[in-house]
């Protein structure tokens, strides 16, 4: 009886805490294409993203915007919204996480940003310059929302392009839906972190890996 009671003690809070735990469920879908921009000397200087929002979020974002012609939005008309977008993205580190040879790299605030609206699709374009451009043998770039409010999906076709990359660099892409990703990820993370803090949970990340000689 005593053990049974102890069970309940552990248990009731567990139920309630479980009920409180905020788990993931996306409300915004983004289809992403990216460019890795290299300098002539082979250093990576930044990442250029083009993020297309799902139509429901697009309607929300465009709500109340004044336009000359109904239903069309010029780049100028969308400029204030683009400004708001990149400003809010800062809080989330632009959902872009880079590692050079296992070392975390940071980005400066976005430049060259704008929104365009074509074929009922709203796309945010922006360039993230690296704080310190680097040459790396192994670059790992991840695009994901840790809270999974936004579901990032790499575009079906040519999701990532390397612009002026050094000779011999090889790119690999892992999508979260890819069944092999989890096993692979575990191996690599375990290897990189020496077994500690393995990020096995990072299933929603889109992973771009570039290996250079």
């Amino acid at each position: 009886m005593k053990t049974a009671l102890r069970f309940l003690w552990v248990f009731l809070p567990a139920v309630l805490l479980g009920a409180a735990a905020a788990e993931a469920h996306p409300h915004v879908w983004i289809t992403s294409t990216s460019e890795l921009i290299y300098a002539p000397d082979g250093t990576l200087t930044g990442v250029r993203h083009a993020w297309t929002f799902d139509e429901m979020f697009a309607a929300y974002a465009l709500q109340g915007l004044e336009t000359k012609t109904k239903g069309t939005y010029t780049r100028e008309e969308l400029a204030p919204l683009a400004q708001t977008n990149v400003e809010s993205l800062k809080e989330y580190a632009y959902f872009t996480f880079a590692k050079a040879d296992g070392r975390k790299e940071k980005f400066n605030e976005p430049v060259d940003y704008f929104l365009d609206y074509r074929d009922n699709q709203l796309t945010l374009h922006f360039t993230l310059p690296l704080k310190a451009p680097f040459k790396a043998k192994a670059l790992v770039l991840e695009v994901f929302d840790p809270t999974f409010f936004i579901d990032f999906k790499l575009a079906e076709k040519d999701p990532v392009r390397m612009v002026a990359a050094p000779e011999g660099c090889q790119m690999k892409i892992q999508r979260p839906s890819d069944g092999s990703a989890s096993a692979q990820q575990l191996n690599e993370q375990t290897f990189m972190d020496g077994g500690a803090n393995s990020n096995f949970g990072m299933m929603f990340a889109n992973k771009i890996i570039v290996d250079c000689p």
Binding site: A21, F97, A98, K104, E142, P146, N199, M203, F204, A205
Partner: peptide, 25 residues
């Protein structure tokens, strides 16, 4: 059900890969 239990604790702004939601997709 709730177990993905990603009460994302203190945010680390430029933190790279951090424990992401859902231990099992």
């Amino acid at each position: 059900l709730d177990g993905a239990a990603q009460s994302v604790m203190a945010q680390n702004p430029f933190g790279g890969p951090r424990p992401a939601p859902g231990s099992e997709i």
